[in-house]
Amino acid sequence: MDVLYFAWVRERIGIPREKVESSAKTVAELVEELRGREERYEVAFSDLSALRVAVDQELTDFDASLEGAREVAFFPPMTGG
């Protein structure tokens, strides 16, 4: 699946998007996998309360299933308007 990062999450991880091969069943499991990779991921995902997640461009939560998901995005709370 494609994993996308926006705003300071993108800056901390250092890339805007990447392909991730994962057997994670939920967003939370995917986060655990990413955190285990390298320190920059650990830093970006250290406080989940400061993050929001969208699966296939719909805002959801960390318990959400990744079944059939093509795109997962992580970002800070939005500041539109």
Binding site: F6, P76, M78, G80, G81
Partner: peptide
């Protein structure tokens, strides 16, 4: 619309 745009539309300002 404005209330929802603020926190439900994926924009980030720097």
């Amino acid at each position: 619309l404005m209330d929802y745009l603020k926190s439900r539309a994926p924009f980030w300002k720097k």
